[in-house]
Design a protein around this nucleic acid. Sequence first.
RNA 1: GCCACUGUAGCUCAGCGGUAGAGCAGCUGUUUCGUAAACAGCAGGUCACCGGUUCAAAUCCGGUCAGUGGCUCCA
Length: 621
Amino acid sequence: MNKAEYEQSELYKLRHSAAHLMAQAVTELFPGVALAIGPPIENGFYYDIDFPEPLREEDLTKIEKKMRELSNLKQPIVRREAKDRADAEKIIREECSLGQPNGVVKYKLELLEDIPEGDPISFYEQQATDKQGNEHMFIDLCRGPHIPDTGTIKHFKLMSLAGAYWRGNVKNKQLTRIYGTAFETKEELELYLHNLEEAKKRDHRKLGRELGLFMFSDKVGPGLPLWLPKGAVLRDTLSDFLKSEQLHRGYEPVVTPNIASKRLYEKSGHILTYKEKMFPFMEDDEKETFILKPMNCPFHIEIYSSTLRSYRDLPVRYAEFGTVYRYEQSGELAGMLRVRGFTQDDAHLFVTPDQLLPEFKGVVDLMMTVLKKLGLDDYRVRVGTRDPDDTKYVGHQDNWDRSEKAILQACDELGLAYEISAGDAAFYGPKLDLIIKDALGREWQMGTVQVDYNLPERFELEYIGEDSKPHRPIMIHRAPFGSLERMIGLLTEQYAGAFPLWLSPVQVAILSIADRHVAYAKSIAEALCGFERDIHLEDEQVPFTPVEATDLGLRVTIDDSRQTLGKKIRETQRLKVPYMLIVGDKDAEAGTVGVRSREDGDLGAMTVPEFIKMVREKLNS
RNA sequence: GCCACUGUAGCUCAGCGGUAGAGCAGCUGUUUCGUAAACAGCAGGUCACCGGUUCAAAUCCGGUCAGUGGCUCCA
């Protein structure tokens, strides 16, 4: 079900009504609360409420109980339209307030003001009398639609509490948001909760620890990841893949430092626009102030402008896996998905106006190649354009028009499905972002391509054109992964830790059955990885024919611990190694290995060349 | 940064006013074993940190730090 279908569905109405039911329960339990807004959302609903006293998580059970009582009253939900604005205000003040002081409807009155002149103003009302003769009643300003009666709201659960600013603005009061979910059947609700539990098992933070990929340390600091050996192998493998792809596409590597003089970022304008995201400056009264870099672009620009450029030199494509540091708000850090020090697969392209479209297309093509290789097919493409009402953007109107047009044209010519999001442009230019969901359904911006007229202007970049006159190049910022940290975090969740063969930190684990098989295991490992391994052999070994070396360069481990085979298999499977090779007496004698695949289990005995052939095919497919 | 919640051994968790417990992992020994956990023993914790209440605090209260779910922002 897509978004539009969902918003038309019965489920959507059910959840909207569940939000109202929850609000009714809250107003009964906590008289004096001020209701703000309570819409259905992707997996449920929420209601933002201003509580005079802070709400505690344990109160949720109480609210749920009250909701069940109110649901059982089978209150009919009735739509009522106000005659005019004055009538609507009267209804809000006199009826929505439920006899409480008028402050409880202040948000509703604000919402009323936002309803455009001429639009119908509707309310939804529900009421009933319980067995004890107590009257229950609730009415809310609401566009609707709703389900006919509250008795249908049976399978729901309140999920969590959160603070949320009124109208999403930090300057406004923070309200208490209660998240809940509701389904049409008990089974659907249970399935949803079950899937949530399953998703937690795929969480990259859990898998990162279990698989030994990365860690955080209090002594190092929040948001500063430490890559463990296996994680570092993943990083290298991923980087090598992109570097080789970029080499074929005419990128040139550059390397720049991690800190720079404050003057560089004054020139770029980041001090003005980005200061609150930067780590504290390294100040020295007498000498220069230095800044830990939050972005790579100014460095690449300095390289560009270090020499006179001809139109014949363009496009210039400078690529760098550059580590940047951003002082993200503490509450925003999230495992590897948002950290304070991360490495961007960054590059900056300096192009002539004529080259903008083909180069942009080239970048998008590279991104598609990357997504395909990584097996990521569930993503959305967002083109961020200006918000016409906002004044934060720099640069000339016609440059913006031209670059927005170029982006859309590139997407159309590549047959890319995209959505336009006004207001999601960078302040210096429009951009195209790839957005991917994590295990818990949260969306993250991954790859990005951004058109920039601003920095070339600020740094007065030039190239000499065919007419022998200086011209200003256009910059394209781009990062197909986005960052290695976020990409690896996401990939870990996508694959639930079972990385494809080419990417797996350990590709083959050789399990010796008894001590006397270690020499044979070692000879196979050497053949597969292509270099000698230093393993001390003390016990007597079974005789075997040495296996011929390959240039495969596989990442191989040997488990020669004195454990039962079952134990070794279990442990190796836990580590999600794609292939296990089990070697015992029969194998040493026959020159075979017992192959066990991560996905398909025991594949039986193969000769070593047969296994190598299978792996080769798998790697090339 | 703000709101709510959490913080006990490497990991998963129990204990929730009377001075710390399990399973797995680790170590030692025995076992040398053919497709998802051999057996036995040992060791491991100023119960995140600081302060308070109490005869007594892992347990109650306050603060700090870190993590989790959200909000605002973003690769």
